[in-house]
Every structure is written in C-alpha cells, then in structure tokens.
Amino acid sequence: MTIVAASRVSPRRGGTGVRWLIGRLGGLLFVLWAAATLTFFALRLIPGDPAEALLGGPGSQASDEALAAAREEYGLNQPLWMQYLAQMGRYLLLDFGTSYSLREPVSSVIAEQFPGTLLLASLALALAWVLAITVAVWSARSGRIAGALGSALEVVAVALPHFWLATSLVLLFSTTLGWLPPISGRSPSGLVLPVITLAIPLAGFLGQVMRESLLNALSSPFAQSARTRGETATGVIWRHGLRHAALPAIGLSGWAFGTLVSGAVVVETVFARPGLGRTLLSAVQARDIPLVTGTVLVVALAYSLVTTLTDVLDRIADPRLRTEANA
C-alpha cells in the first residue's frame, strides 16, 4: 500500500537528462494538442450556427454570402471528424483562419502584435526581479521590523489590481506631475508606466518567495560554515544566500511570464498601447472567435515553451533535481 502510494507521488518522471528532456517535450506536445482540441470542441458547444458564431454571434447579422463563405473556409458542411482533422492540420501550419473584425489573417495580426507585448512582458519581468531581490536582501539584512514591513509591502503589492495601479500611476505621473505620457503609443517613455504597473504586483509575489527561501538559506549549514570561514554578512547574502533563494523564483518565472501576458490585456487597454493583450480584449468584445482562439493558442504555446525552458534551467541550476531519487 505504502509503496503504491509512494510511487504515485513521483509520477512518470525519472531517467537521466536526455530521457527526462524527451519526456518533458512529449508532455509539451501533448498539452498543446489537447489545448487545441479543447478550443475546437468548445467552439462547437456554442448554441446555434457555428458559422454565425465564427462571424460574431447572432447579433452580427452576417449576410448569407458571408455565412456560406465561412462554412466553406472552415469546412462546416463536412462531418465533425473531418472538420477536426482539417482544423488540426491548419493549426500545425500556424493558420488560425481569418479575423472577421479586422479582415486580416489571424496569424499576421498576431505576428504584428506579439513583439510589442513580448517587450513589455520581458521588461516587466526584469524590473520585478530587481525589485524582489532588493526587498528580499534589504529585509533579510535589517531584522524583524524591516522584515514585517517588507512582508506587508509584498501583500499590498500582490493585492493591487493592474487596472487600479495603472490609473493611479497615470494620475500621479501624468496628470499631476506631467512627467510621463498617459498614452503609451510606441515611444520608449510611454513604456515606463506600463512596465511599472506590470512589475509591482509580480515583484510582491516573487519577493515573498525569495525572502522566505533567503531566510531559510541564511540559517542553513552552508551559510553557517561560510560565516565561520570569515565571510562578511553581505558576502553570505550575495555569494551564498541569493543563489539558493533564486531557485524557486526562477522556477516561478515561467508562471510569471504567463501572468504578465494576461496582465497585458488590462495594461495595454488602460495605456492604449498596441499589443496582443489589447487585440485579445477587442476580439473577445467583438466575439471574433478565430482571433480569440488564435491568440489564446499562441499565448499558450509561448507560455508552455517558457515553462519548459525554466524547468530545464532549474535542473541545470539545482543538481539535486538530477539525482535518481528526485528525478
């Protein structure tokens, strides 16, 4: 009984590096296939005519010609399994159909909008890391009161909704002080407020994780031994503690990337910044199904790739994950 239970705790992992990687990539492909399948069937659950749904629902009053064209394009006259196979074939070629609201192929809309969102998310992730490390180190160095203060800051930061943070920053830095533009556009100065908006809640979250593991690291034997060897407090934190504390936070960076892309929906809307998030929101509002599913699937693809990458990095950074027992 115990053995059976224990074997279930570490499911289908094991093996050495290459085998692990192959298994991980297999899992990635499975998730992507299943996500695509899920969206295919979810679409068929919409009551009414699927051709109409693809063109924006019953309210869209699509013409008979448009409906016929949509039926032709998506093969809606064919049996379900053929539609499914055809859909999966098109997805493999990154063909997500045509957006009816933008009258453009979905893949070219995404190619146009993704780089801006990627830049925004990457900068926000970098800033969140800097903030999280700063708060973690500062509160680890300065004792209990600073620790409590740091912890309170983190809780508030995590609870800040993007839309409120964004509007408050606009009020402060654009309306009152006039330092930064309230509309992001494509200029570099317009990036500052969106990046800060996305970074602060994330920094709060990463900071909580980092501070806890930093404190654990600083009271562990290797930190003690570094101290007895005459290492300074700063040296122990930077050379030994942070390395250890960064591990769980690296693992979370994949997840963080996902929340940033999701947060971009709100932030790009508030700052009127072109990007994938804003495109997704207007697609949802217009019920532009091909654009919604295309965008969501591309984000899922990017997100799964990033989490796989962080898993690999985790394994490289932490030799303990590579031993048979933990594999």
Binding site: P11, V261, V265, V299, Y303
Partner: peptide
C-alpha cells in the same frame, strides 16, 4: 489520476485570465 492530472495540465497552459477570456468569448 493520470487523466485528471493531464487535464489540469492542459488548463494550466492558459495562464491567468486567458481561460476566463476564452470562456467569455464563447459564452458571451
């Protein structure tokens, strides 16, 4: 267990509000 774990993994592929937005696009 394998089925439900896999299913949850698939849901996890849609980060944050994305699953919610997908649902709203479909259900209105």
């Amino acid at each position: 267990d394998t089925t439900s774990t896999r299913f949850v993994e698939v849901l996890f592929a849609f980060p944050g509000l994305l699953l919610a937005l997908l649902f709203i696009a479909i259900a209105g």
